[in-house]
Computed example of a mutant assay.
Amino acid sequence: MFLYYVLAAVIIGVDQWTKYLTVAHIDLYEVVEVIPGVLSWMYIRNTGAAWSILEGKMWFFYLVTIVVVGVVVVYLQKYGKNSRLLSIALAFILAGSIGNFIDRLRVEYVIDMVRLEFINFPIFNVADMALSIGVVLMILYVFLDEKKQKKNSPG
Rank of each mutant, 00 (worst) to 15 (best):
S52H: 00
V73C: 14
P122S: 13
F118L: 15
V126W: 01
V68C: 08
G48M: 02
V71D: 02
F121C: 08
Y109N: 07
N100I: 15
F92S: 02
K81T: 15
D112E: 11
V73M: 11
G70W: 11
Y62C: 00
L105Y: 11
V64N: 04
T47S: 01
V72R: 02
R84L: 15
K57T: 02
T47I: 01
N46V: 03
G80P: 06
R45S: 00
L86D: 04
L76M: 12
T47H: 02
I93G: 04
I88W: 04
L90P: 01
V72C: 06
I53P: 00
E108C: 04
M58V: 07
D112V: 14
F118M: 12
M58P: 00
I88A: 15
V68P: 00
R106D: 08
R45W: 04
T47G: 01
I119A: 10
N100M: 13
F118Y: 12
D112L: 14
K81M: 11
L76K: 08
Y62V: 05
V67T: 10
A89N: 08
Y62E: 03
I123N: 04
L54P: 00
I111Q: 12
Y43W: 01
V107R: 07
I44T: 03
N120D: 15
Y43V: 05
L63T: 13
Y109D: 07
G96A: 06
M42T: 06
N120R: 12
K78V: 15
V69C: 10
G99S: 11
V71K: 05
K57I: 01
L86R: 10
A89T: 10
S52C: 01
R115W: 14
I66W: 03
V69A: 11
R115L: 12
L94R: 02
G56K: 03
I119M: 11
Y62N: 02
R104N: 09
W51Q: 06
N100H: 15
L85A: 10
I44G: 00
W59P: 02
N120L: 12
V68L: 13
L90Q: 06
T65H: 06
D112Q: 13
F61V: 14
V67A: 08
I119S: 07
L90A: 06
Y75C: 13
S87W: 02
D103P: 05
M42F: 03
Y79C: 15
S52V: 01
L90M: 09
F121E: 10
G56D: 03
V74E: 11
S52E: 01
L90Y: 04
P122A: 14
I53A: 12
I102E: 09
R84M: 15
G96R: 03
N46S: 02
M42Q: 09
A50V: 07
L85T: 14
A49K: 07
Y109Q: 09
G99Q: 11
V71Q: 08
Y62P: 01
M58E: 04
Y79M: 14
A49V: 04
L76P: 07
L54H: 04
F61S: 06
